[in-house]
Design a protein around this nucleic acid. Structure first.
Lengths: 197, 197
DNA sequence: ACCTGAACACCGTTCAAGT
DNA sequence: ACCTGAACACCGTTCAAGT
């Protein structure tokens, strides 16, 4: 029954995992480095080796969040078959699902963007958004979306999806209106995008 | 040169004003009741009479935020002449201007919604959004927007505007792309809304 | 009715010291 | 290389006491 002299294999990973849980259940405000250390079983000074300060931990959380978001978007998109509209709907639903189950984390991910990019954070966020861009390009190839830079064409779509997520997590839209709103918004977007002819 | 025995006229108002400034300049995280009291010149226990705890101050900030947002939206709308599209653009611009100059406050306003409504907070937010609803109804009357409950028709529009604000404050869209994006989004929305015939 | 000031438990951060 | 534990300055919250 001896105590491990230091810590199990990877303190960094353990801290991140516990932090993600705490953020989801209690929000970012209530995330305390000292409590985290306690829960993981190390002294309050130990996290410092891995995260110089609280902000460093938050940045790492954001980076991990982008990685997971990218994976979930891309798996939703690929699991939706070949039809463009089905793919679009599935990807939007996956984004909103992430945004509502991890609202505090997503807020963190957005907030982290205006700080000095940690490099890794920026790359992780680019990878996540590349899934959306891929989708836009496909829509353009099929002639359903207007031509032009995918970044620009996709911006209105992405803004709408992000806004819906904000409305839901903000309590302005109930969960029961969500599906209808997504379908509505996408139909709206596609109607607005169809080339005149 | 005697010190005022207690405080000048209205401690509550002074605290709120200073808090709004701090939130704008430093964010919500750095808002400290003790520092606020110091800046306003009272002891750290004094705010308690007016705000039982930190959350009560945040709720009051959110309520004041909704009041100001409503006023700014409504003044933007009325100052834009009679043309519906001009009014829509002006109102959207006013919303995004509020969202970007007071990003932390807006976040607070959205976050406050899922807590137990303080009543006053709920009313203030309703009044702010009623400006948007009025606009939608006008669009419907002019036949530019589809019929149906204004709340439902306006939701996609509001989501898009809110999403654009989030993209800007999140740093995904630069200030120089903002105007183009707003025009784009509104044109997109109106195209998507036009009745088939 | 409104404010003060001591007290308590909690934080983030720093840093010498241990293994 | 990684972790401990004391120390410091700061918080939010509570509450008896002052005017």
């Amino acid at each position: 029954m001896k105590q491990r002299p230091y810590h199990h294999g990877n303190l960094r990973t353990a801290l991140l995992a516990q932090a993600e849980r705490t953020v989801r259940e209690q929000g970012v405000q209530d995330l305390s480095l000292r409590e985290l250390a306690r829960e993981v079983g190390v002294s309050h000074g130990a996290p410092r080796r891995h995260f110089p300060d609280r902000q460093a931990l938050l940045d790492a959380l954001a980076e991990a969040g982008f990685a997971r978001l990218g994976a979930e978007l891309s798996s939703a998109m690929e699991g939706a078959g070949e039809d463009f509209q089905a793919r679009l709907r599935a990807t939007a639903a996956a984004y909103i699902s992430f945004a509502t189950s991890d609202a505090a984390l997503l807020e963190l991910m957005f907030a982290g963007k205006h700080r000095e990019q940690s490099g890794a954070l920026h790359e992780a966020s680019d990878r996540a958004f590349s899934v959306m861009l891929e989708l836009i390009q496909r829509g353009q190839a099929e002639g359903v979306l207007e031509r032009g830079e995918p970044e620009r064409v996709g911006l209105v779509l992405f803004a709408t999806i992000q806004g819906i997520a904000a409305l839901v997590t903000g309590g302005m839209v109930g969960a029961e209106q969500l599906d209808e709103l997504v379908v509505d918004a996408i139909a709206h977007f596609l109607r607005g995008s169809r080339v005149a002819a």
